[in-house]
């Protein structure tokens, strides 16, 4: 995940101890309902939504990293919740489309082996 942080010029808010872990796919949504319904085995969630349910949703889906785009700043309560859940949280100045583009271009795909990428 070091590469994600560097590609997205992101600030790390918590989970430094997990940064060496590898991730193989990602998804991007502001609708947590859709994340719960459609996501399968993606390790990273990119979103512009700020509320504790973002972290809880990521935790339910066994995701290990949440990137807040457009410099959206999560609350201290959210960061604390992420710490408890063992989730890396980053904040990127990029817009969602741009951030996704950088990650996709660098090899982080939507859903490895799935035709509905």
């Amino acid at each position: 995940m070091y590469e994600i942080q560097s590609l997205l010029h992101a600030e790390l808010l918590c989970g430094e101890e997990y940064l060496q872990n590898e991730v193989y796919s990602a998804c991007c949504s502001d609708m947590m309902s859709d994340v719960l319904a459609y996501v399968k085995d993606q390790g990273v969630l990119l979103t512009g939504l700020i509320n504790p349910q973002v972290i809880r949703t990521a935790s339910m889906m066994d995701m290990i990293c949440v990137v807040f785009v457009r410099d959206k700043a999560p609350t201290e309560e959210m960061v604390e919740l992420a710490r408890e859940c063992g989730i890396v949280v980053m904040c990127s100045p990029m817009r969602a489309y741009e951030a996704c583009g950088h990650l996709y271009y660098s090899g982080l795909r939507g859903n490895a082996g799935d035709k509905h990428v």
């Binding site: 309902s33 939504l49 349910q53 973002v54």
Partner: peptide, 14 residues
């Protein structure tokens, strides 16, 4: 509720 990221009509089916 949708602005909070929920209410896509996927809850019960999910």
């Amino acid at each position: 509720i949708r602005a909070l990221g929920f209410g896509a009509g996927m809850g019960l089916p999910n």
